[in-house]
Each structure stands twice: as structure tokens, then as C-alpha cells.
Design a protein around this nucleic acid. Structure first.
Length: 796
DNA sequence: CGATCGCGGATTTTT
DNA sequence: TCCGCGATCG
């Protein structure tokens, strides 16, 4: 029977999957699974659900499974339907935001939202904020929109409304006031931002006992993936739903649910967006979960795993875990010290060629970096060497301007009060509605406290005429598509809004036209996948039609989908191309060969992190994540000089290199520590004077190089910058480094300053009169000093 | 209304 | 360095 579900699990996985969800007193028993990298975490989570269902401990509708990304949710559903003959579509498996959206759609009245509420993504939110500040005549120099956006998002993620904030000073008071005004604006427009989805459903559950009880009784099993990435609000939401909220008396009218949390504190790398590993400890204290550690790693060879374990052991404050593997030591971890960023890139190219020649597929090779800026030079080198590559993290489908324009029209069909959408397309394509007219509507809307759309139809005069035309256009499109299918509606709108025509007449509009066509396909696919259409109930599980669950129109569902799932950000999948991405985006992925580049102080660990609370430990975890992506081969590289923000910087090798087990390492270049300028190799020396990239290169048109690039990406394409003819063996390396000796000091040297005392030089940059040294003072910390001014003396 | 110029900002990212 | 945004000009 169910034993075949467990057949392929190792003992610890099996233990996790079959933990009793009820204790001997008949109460719900929660669990915490510490799942190391590559330990089969998703498998355990999915099998747990299947096991619970198959053993009759819960029916599919009694399960709530939460993930952070749509990708993870999809994967879970896919695997689950492979394990059990059930339709997962009606199950509550999804992202926090997706599930909250579902909740709010079903109970929009109780949540105080119109049934047609729209979701603001980050871009939309920023433009809503800018519009708000303009309307209130607030100085956006003093109160930068971006900062306000951050302020609002973080307050919401802590579960705080504007009124609940304690404001320390005038600035904060004003920000709180703007936060409140922003919420009022959103409410009037019938829109919610991402954090609001969570906060609103949290408040809904908190204040509406009937609804809370209903869901508490329904979801007796709650499973959470990537628990280390939860923020305070998500944790509070979980406590409410699982009936563990201590602030509520009589919690247990519904009893509590069994929570099954899976996470890895060593892979917590999202503190900057509000994630709080502390939640794991809180959960331990508050839920008294049974704990299982998954430490058997199925991904990496021994040296790689040893390297990861050794590095992460430098972190204090861990729940404690040590990965092991059955797969022998394998290859040592190779370290390369390059004289310059160009040389590093040239070396990457050579190693990649060798790997490919040895039979490794390009898709199995990943080039990782700490920050996106580093990709440029690598892309350049790959391009020059004609090595196909793919960069992760560009614009996603639903974020493209033309798609957002089309969606804005569609949103206005659904919800005319959505001023963000109104503003976006009222004059796009241009239809003679200028700044004056816009101002007039905004004034009118403010005066009558109405939406721009409503105000537009009340205006008269010249502005009234043109705006009236726009309103009529939208009304017309709404009427005309009333009985259309979703794809028909989308097609009608992109045609009749004038978007297609506009882009057809634009010089480089062809891609955009294609994307708009693609939007129709996306709508068709959406209908098919979501099971809308001839038999909408097919997707519904027995018992799913609980009171309060309402059907939403396909258009509404599609618009939510577009906001909540921005689409793939890795174009051209399937191409055999080398994978380029940040370490963050590599989380959860694995590759045969991994290169971690730019392992320099200031870059990785990033200089900003040093001043952050626990910043270094988070950087170290980031490095841990990077290392554990590799299955068989791992390469680490760093460079002595690097162009950053238009200036050459000289960085010390990353401290993380000193935190690795030497037995597992192999230095491809002599290990250099303080003798920074010595290590010469064939990848370019200071003396090598190359021509600059601009010289002697031909530019190629995109159409000729499509093989290598994501044709759908807005990311700057190397082909547009520089192409080149010639073989890689003649790769030109431009040494941006000035001749050594330009500085009176060297990196690593001890110095004395009359005011700051003793310190050590950790960086040098700039030239001549502009030359600066970064010094780490024993008593005063890290400072940059202008060498022409600072009184620095060398000491031993 | 569109193009062009100049400024500021430049970890990491999902929803 | 270099990209994106906003203001300003023609």
C-alpha cells in the first residue's frame, strides 16, 4: 500500500515523513525538519503530504502547503500527483501570497475589499507612491518614494499599520502619516500591494472568528517549505491559522493543527527582505516540534561537502548540522588568483572550454557571482569566445512595459478605480491627453474624492473631451468583450487600445508586438491549466465548495496570476548554454560544475554587509549556499584588481578563502596573501598592454547572434555593446591596474595615523592626487583616506 | 509629444 | 562606468 511511497527514502527521510501528527494525548504534534542542502527536502515534504493522505489521516482538502515561490509550489503539485491518483488543483498548495489572495477573493467583503481588487506589484506600488506624494505636494527629495516604499513594506511585514507605529522623530512621524495616506489611497482604488495581501488576510483571520474557525478546522495539516525565509507576519499568520496564537483565549474551540516545517538555518540568505531565522527558534519554543535532521547529502562529492561544512562551522548561532555523503572525495576544490577582472574572465573561458571538451554539458556549468554588476565582464568574455550563455534574473514576462500596458487596460475593465492602471495608459498610446488634462482630472478626483476614471467622465472643456474619449474607449472594450473568452478579450484589448498599432509603427517595436501576441497565448494556456472553460467544476474536489468560496472570473484570475507570478526569468530554456546568475538566484539549483567568482573582500563578503547586524554570518551562509550548488567540480576565483563604479579597486582575497579546509583545496596559482602583486600567470600581467575593447572589434547585429542570447530579455545584450571577430587565443586583456609603486603603501601593510592610530591597509584605489587607501584601524574601524592629505606612516 | 541631456545611484529578490 | 529616470527643449 503506502509502503511504496516510503520505499526509496533513507531512514532519516522516512522518519521525517512518518512522524506522528498526533501525540499520545490526541493533540496535534508539529514537526521541524532541518533539511541540509541536497538532502531531499522537497521529496520529504511531498511524500509527507502523500503519506498523510494515503494513510487516511487527512483528506486532500484538509492540507495547506505553503512555499515561497511559484516554482516550488508547482513542483510540489507535480510530484504529488505523480505519487497519488488525486487532482492537486483544488488543493491549497501555493505561495503565501497566492493563498492569501485566494482567501481574500473568497472573503473580500469581510476583508473590506471590492470583489474586483487588483494587486500592485513592486513597480506599481512605487508609481502609486509617487502619485500620492505629488498629490499631497510632498517634497520627494526629503521623503524619497523608494524609501517610503521600503518603510511601508517593512512595517507591513512586521504586521504594523501606520497607527501602530511608534515614531521616534518628525521624519518617522511624517513617514507614518504618508503610510496611512497610502493605505487610504489603495483602499479607495481597490488595490492591494504584496505585503497587504498577507497583512489583510492576517487581519481577516484575526478579527473574524467564523472564518478563522472555519479554516482552522479545515486545515488540520499545515506544511511550510523554506521555513528559515519566513518573516514576522508570515509566522504570525501561521500561528493564527494553526490555532497556536497565544494571544487568543480559547484558541482551541477549533483545536490546533499539526505544522510540518522544513528549513535550513544555514541557508537563510534573505534577511534583507525581512526573513527572520529567529522564527525557527521561536517555533521550537512555541510548538515543541519533533525534530529530524536530514544530513545525508545526495548532491556533492566529498571535498566539496567538506569545504561547505568547514566554512559554515565558522558561524556561531546555528541549530547545528553536518552534511555527509557516500560519494567519495572526488575532485579537490580549485582556487584561482587572477591579476585582474579581465584575466579572471579569460580564465573562466578557458576552464569552461576544457570542461565542455571533456563532455560536460554547458547547462551543467554555472558561473556564480555576488552581485549582478560582475556579470558584464564575464558575459563579454564568453561572448568573445562564442560560448553560449544564459543570464538569470532579467526582466520577466509580465514585467515588460508593453505587457504591463496591456494588463493595465484589462485591469481597468475589471476595476475602473485602479488609478495606477489609469495613469499608466490614459495617454498610452498617445491620444492627445497632455499634462494639463492629467492635472485637471487629478484635481477633480481629489475634489470629489473619487477615482481618476470617474472624475474623467465628469470633466468638461478640452480636457473633458479627450478624457471622455478614453473613458468611452475603455467602457466600449468592457461592453464588447462581456461575453468573450479570456483570450478573445485579451486580443480585443491589445488591438483596440491601439497598443499593437503603436508598436508596429515603432522602429524597434517588433519584439513588443510579439510579446503582446504572446500574452494571448499566455491567456489561452492559463485557461487550459486552471481548468476554466467548459467544465469549471472539474477542478473542484469534493467538499471544496465550502461556504464563502466564490468563483472569480477568468479575467480576474488571470490578472492575479499576472501579478503574483511574473513569469520565467530565465529565457530560452533548453538551449545548451552556460548558466550565469547571482548566488542568491542559484539557491535550490544544482550543477555538475560551479564557478564562484569575485571572492574578494568588499565584494564577497560584500562591504555593506560588514556593517549590518549579523551581516558577515549571512554572507558566509551565502557562500555556503554557493558551494553546495556543486556536484562534482567547484572552482573559486578572485582577482587583485577590479573595475567597479568606473574605478579600479584593489581588494584582498575574501576571508572565506581562509576558512576552507586546505586538504580539500588545490591552488591553481601560488597562494598569495600579502605579496599582492607577485602572482603572474598567463592570464595577463601588469606589463601587458592590450588594445582596448573598442579597438579592432566589429559590431554584430543581434539577429546574427541570436544563438547565444535570450532574445526575449531586455537586459543589455553584449551583442549591442561589443562583438568581436577572432579566436579566444588572442583574447585581449586590458590591465586597468596602474604600474605598481604608484602607492606609497601596499595592501596588508601596517600603518600609523596621527589621529586614528594603528591600522592595516586593506585597499587602494584612484591615481596620483586622487589616490586613496582603505585602512582598517584597530580602534576606529575601516576608513578610506586620501593619500595626498592623510598623514599616514608605514610601520612594521 | 518625442528626443535628448544630465544627474544620481550602483548588493542580494520573491511575491 | 553605465544605466535609468526626470526635466527640459525643440
Amino acid at each position: 500500500m503506502y509502503s511504496d511511497l516510503l520505499a526509496n527514502l533513507n531512514p532519516e527521510q522516512r522518519e521525517a515523513v512518518t512522524l506522528p501528527p498526533v501525540n499520545q494525548h490526541g493533540q496535534a504534534q508539529s514537526a521541524l525538519i532541518l533539511a541540509g542542502a541536497g538532502s531531499g527536502k522537497t521529496r520529504v515534504l511531498t511524500t509527507r503530504i502523500a503519506w498523510l493522505i494515503q494513510t487516511g489521516q487527512v483528506s486532500p482538502i484538509g492540507v495547506l502547503a505553503v512555499t515561497f515561490t511559484n516554482k516550488a509550489a508547482k513542483e510540489m503539485m507535480l510530484r504529488l500527483s505523480a505519487m497519488l491518483p488525486i487532482n492537486t488543483r483544488g488543493m491549497w498548495i501555493g505561495t503565501f501570497h497566492g493563498l492569501c489572495n485566494r482567501l481574500l477573493r473568497a472573503h473580500h467583503k469581510e476583508a473590506g475589499l471590492p470583489s474586483t481588487f487588483q494587486i500592485l506589484d513592486t513597480q506599481d506600488q512605487l508609481s502609486a507612491i509617487k502619485r500620492l506624494l505629488k498629490g499631497l505636494k510632498v517634497d520627494d527629495e526629503k521623503y524619497p518614494p523608494k524609501q517610503l516604499q521600503y518603510f511601508i513594506a517593512h512595517a507591513k511585514e512586521r504586521g504594523q499599520r501606520a497607527r501602530e507605529l511608534s515614531v521616534g522623530d518628525d521624519f518617522q512621524a511624517k513617514m507614518a502619516q504618508l503610510y496611512e495616506a497610502y493605505d487610504e489611497q489603495c483602499q479607495r482604488e481597490g488595490v492591494v500591494d504584496f505585503a497587504e495581501l498577507l497583512l489583510r488576510s492576517y487581519e481577516l483571520l484575526k478579527h473574524n472568528e467564523a472564518i478563522r474557525t472555519h479554516y482552522q478546522e479545515r486545515f488540520r495539516h499545515i506544511l511550510i517549505d523554506e521555513f528559515q525565509d519566513t518573516n514576522a507576519l508570515q509566522y504570525a499568520w501561521l500561528k493564527l491559522l494553526s490555532g497556536h496564537d497565544a494571544s487568543r483565549i480559547n484558541v482551541s474551540s477549533a483545536g490546533s493543527s499539526a505544522v510540518f516545517a522544513v528549513g535550513d538555518d544555514d541557508q537563510s540568505i534573505y534577511a534583507f527582505r525581512g526573513a527572520d531565522v529567529e522564527n525557527m527558534r521561536l517555533y521550537e519554543q512555541q510548538y515543541h516540534p519533533m525534530m529530524v535532521k536530514l544530513e545525508q547529502n545526495y548532491r556533492s562529492h566529498g571535498h566539496i561537502l567538506d569545504t561547505a561544512n568547514y566554512l559554515i562551522s565558522n558561524n556561531t548561532d546555528r541549530l547545528g548540522k553536518n552534511l555527509r555523503t557516500d560519494a567519495g572525495h572526488g575532485e579537490p576544490v580549485r582556487i584561482f588568483d587572477a591579476p585582474s577582472d579581465h584575466a579572471e574572465a579569460a580564465w573562466l573561458v578557458d576552464e569552461i572550454k576544457a570542461l565542455v571538451n571533456s563532455g560536460i554539458k554547458r547547462t551543467e556549468i554555472a558561473l556564480l557571482y555576488r552581485s549582478n554588476a560582475q556579470s558584464r565582464i564575464i558575459e563579454h568574455a564568453l561572448f568573445s569566445a562564442a560560448i553560449p550563455y544564459r543570464v538569470y534574473g532579467g526582466l520577466r514576462f509580465f514585467e515588460r512595459a508593453e505587457i504591463k500596458h496591456a494588463l493595465a487596460y484589462l485591469r481597468l475593465l475589471e476595476n475602473p478605480n485602479d488609478d495606477t492602471s489609469f495613469s499608466r495608459v490614459v495617454n498610452f498610446p498617445t491620444r492627445g491627453i497632455g499634462a494639463r488634462s492629467i492635472e485637471a482630472v487629478q484635481d477633480a478626483a481629489r475634489a470629489q474624492n473619487s477615482s481618476l476614471y470617474l472624475a474623467a467622465s465628469t470633466l468638461d472643456g478640452k480636457a473633458g473631451a479627450s478624457l471622455g474619449g478614453f473613458v468611452r474607449l475603455v467602457d466600449h472594450m468592457r461592453e464588447a468583450t462581456r461575453h468573450n473568452t479570456l483570450p478573445e478579450t485579451v486580443e480585443f484589448v491589445i488591438q483596440n487600445s491601439g497598443l499593437i498599432q503603436h508598436y508596429l509603427s515603432e522602429r524597434e517595436g517588433q519584439d513588443r508586438v510579439e510579446n503582446l501576441q504572446e500574452l494571448i497565448n499566455a491567456a489561452t494556456a492559463f485557461i487550459a491549466e486552471e481548468g476554466y472553460g467548459q467544465d469549471a467544476t472539474a477542478a473542484t474536489l469534493p467538499g471544496e465548495n465550502a461556504p464563502g468560496i466564490v468563483e472569480v472570473s477568468p479575467l480576474a484570475a488571470f490578472l492575479s496570476h499576472a501579478s503574483l507570478e511574473a513569469g520565467d526569468n530565465q529565457a530560452q530554456a533548453g538551449q545548451d548554454a552556460v548558466q550565469l546568475m547571482t548566488v542568491h538566484s542559484a539557491k535550490g539549483l544544482e550543477f555538475t560544475s560551479v564557478f564562484i567568482t569575485g571572492l574578494e573582500e568588499g565584494l564577497f563578503p560584500h562591504e555593506n554587509s560588514v556593517n549590518e547586524q549579523n551581516g558577515l554570518e549571512e554572507e558566509r551562509r551565502l557562500m555556503y549556499v554557493a558551494i553546495t550548488r556543486a556536484k562534482e567540480r567547484l572552482y573559486l576565483s578572485h582577482t587583485q584588481s577590479r573595475m567597479l563604479h568606473g574605478q579600479v579597486r584593489y581588494n584582498m582575497p575574501s576571508r572565506f578563502l581562509e576558512e576552507l579546509p586546505s586538504d580539500s583545496l588545490k591552488w591553481l596559482t601560488p597562494k598569495v596573501k600579502d605579496a599582492r602583486w607577485g602572482g603572474g600567470n598567463s592570464y595577463g600581467n601588469a606589463g601587458r598592454s592590450g588594445s582596448t575593447w573598442q579597438d579592432g572589434y566589429t559590431r554584430q547585429r543581434d539577429s546574427e547572434t541570436n544563438d547565444f542570447f535570450d532574445s526575449g530579455s531586455d537586459r543589455q545584450r553584449p551583442a549591442k555593446q561589443l562583438g568581436r571577430v577572432g579566436s579566444a587565443s588572442t583574447t585581449v586583456t586590458r590591465m586597468a591596474a596602474p604600474p605598481r609603486g604608484n602607492y606609497p603603501f601596499t595592501i596588508g601593510q601596517n600603518v600609523f595615523h596621527t589621529k586614528f592610530g594603528e591600522g592595516r591597509v586593506t585597499g587602494l584605489e584612484g591615481n596620483d592626487a586622487d589616490a586613496r587607501a582603505q585602512v582598517n584601524f584597530k580602534r576606529h574601524g575601516v576608513k578610506w583616506l586620501q593619500l595626498s592629505i592623510a598623514k599616514l606612516a608605514a610601520i612594521n
